[in-house]
Design a protein around this nucleic acid. Structure first.
Lengths: 146, 146
DNA sequence: CTACGAACTCAAGTCGACTTGAGGTCAAGG
DNA sequence: CCTTGACCTCAAGTCGACTTGAGTTCGTAG
């Protein structure tokens, strides 16, 4: 198992080394030892960094991300909470979709003031709605085939 | 046209008055005059605030949001840029969907360490892909019924 | 063996987006 | 008329997530 120098990881992940040091410091993506002073990373660190990037892009804080995918392979990381996060993501995705549609509309609509355009107003109104009326999984018959 | 007191707007929008003052100060959601010292808002401000909330939720900065939907009904707000934003949103939506799926998997997968679960690794790998290979709209036959 | 450059540490700074606090103003109800 | 409570201004503080800078230490090529 070859360990990677922080510089290699930084290059591969497209992050500055300072960020890696920071993540190491807060324990989010720990380094895997040192050679002299230099941090070394297991290749898995790249996957972890990707995960962190995903979480960041989704608007989660580093703390939340740490809670979802701890550095250790956490055994039972509160499935409730994870499903809650996933639900939150569903809502966020819904909101983003609404915003995207609104933006596309604005880009194409010739109305001089969006505020006067009924389509625009409707789009914005719609965006406030919940994605679904709280869909119950109906787990009764589903044999969790994953 | 009844103007709303800042307190009413704050209550309706679910924001603290300080935020409204801040948005007013930076010109993002300007107030519509004063009664004595008190800011008054046109009802449209509520829609604007909703829009701002959408943008924030999508991860845009206030500056970017201002650029998309200026307080004035900007006539031709750089359609290029707006479509670029929309594309960015598409990518973001894609990323969020991937993260959501990954999280749901983690919530349901019995593997002791996610890093060892091939499904997990595949999900994370997949998340890096582009949403689509740059789909051309092919506007030819679409009678744009909007 | 020496020098170079990349890493290191630690404290402090930055940035966006607000919030908080102190001290002042004012419109409306009693 | 007077009190009250919501509003005001302005400066400063906060928080997360890093970045920057000064001063130091190494591993490796020459």
């Amino acid at each position: 198992m070859k360990l990677l120098d922080i510089g290699e990881v930084a290059a591969a992940a497209g992050l500055p080394p300072s960020t890696l040091r920071y993540y190491d410091e807060i324990g989010l993506v720990p380094s895997d030892g040192r050679r002299g002073l230099r941090r070394l990373y297991a290749p898995d660190a790249l996957l972890q960094l990707k995960l962190v990037a995903m979480g960041r892009a989704a608007g989660f804080s580093l703390d939340e991300i740490a809670g979802m995918f701890g550095p250790d392979g956490r055994p039972d990381p509160d499935r409730e909470a994870l499903h809650a996060k996933a639900d939150e993501l569903d809502r966020r995705i819904h909101a983003l979709t609404a915003l995207r549609d609104t933006i596309r509309h604005v880009a194409d609509c010739p109305a001089p003031r969006h505020m006067d355009c009924p389509t625009f107003r409707r789009l914005v109104e719609l965006a406030g709605r919940r994605p679904r009326p709280r869909r119950k999984p109906r787990r009764r018959a589903a044999p969790g085939r994953d």
